[in-house]
Design a protein around this nucleic acid. Structure first.
Lengths: 145, 145
DNA sequence: TATGATGTTGACTAGTTTAGTCGTGAATCT
DNA sequence: AGATTCACGACTAAACTAGTCAACATCATA
């Protein structure tokens, strides 16, 4: 498993900011409620995202979180790597050691990994926000019918 | 991380059988020595591989392990799934539930996962054995020069 | 400048997974 | 019978995951 709840929640938080962050900061509690994320846990994820430079926060009343850049300028690859660490599917792919006692399957996984990163780099938070809006729309429609 | 030492060791064990299993059963101790796998741990992996139908074993003197089929007929995908369980990079990809509260990134990862399985299915133990022979050859050459 | 709303941080925890070890037993060959 | 080899379940230490909690820092505003 490469992506756990960290990566899932963290990305959802950024999507939330992309969707609702246009008129001022968004508070943790709102994000947590809308995205079904335990509030105390979200704290840590937002801290990671802030340290990685994706969001900035302001304290005090009317405080909250905002993206530091346009959602279109934040790609999924970088976000996931900030949240989960390396996405390498097997340990030996992290070190460029070219170790002589390499695992036999390395070359297959190296290709898979490279491909994976290309795909993830091609997806932005804006793309995900669009999908999310569509999903919410369909959900609303299915209830109202 | 999708592949741990289990997947690495287990595949190496099968490659070892592919390379040295032509004249009778190969013993655990030999595999463990050649592949640098803790013997007691290798037991468990061989048991898994036997239960999954990739190897058969015979006890007693001159006993050991053999592949049940030609190395060319055993693909990496099935071996890894037998050893590691599901290779899904994120949890929601395992259930075909089409859950309505899906994670936002699901579609990207679904594509990556599908691609990964195709690549892994295209590689056989015979392919890996060829590579391994090449690697050992080059290693020997580099020492003798 | 006091107050309360808000984010920040580090310590802590329960449960799970990983990577093994160990001991006993079962089968088989000579 | 005795040596050799695999079989299997119990056990363990360390790391990781997914959180919780409490104390603290900062800021807007009345």
């Amino acid at each position: 498993m490469i992506i756990g709840s960290k990566g899932d929640y963290g990305v959802r938080a950024l999507i939330d900011l992309a969707m609702y962050g246009d008129d001022g900061p968004v508070q943790r509690t709102e994000i947590a409620r809308r995205q079904h994320i335990p509030e105390a846990y979200l704290d840590h994820l937002l801290a990671q995202l802030r340290r990685a430079g994706f969001v900035r926060s302001t304290r005090g009343p009317q405080g909250g979180h905002q993206l530091t850049r346009s959602p279109a300028a934040i790609c999924l690859l970088h976000v996931l790597e900030a949240l989960e660490g390396s996405l390498a599917p097997m340990p030996c792919l992290d070190h460029e050691d070219e170790d002589s006692t390499v695992c036999a399957q390395q070359w297959v996984w190296r290709e898979i990994y490279a491909d994976m990163r290309v795909r993830l780099a091609a997806v932005s938070m804006a793309d995900l926000a669009v999908r999310e809006r569509e999903r919410l729309g369909q959900l609303a429609a299915s209830y109202s019918i």
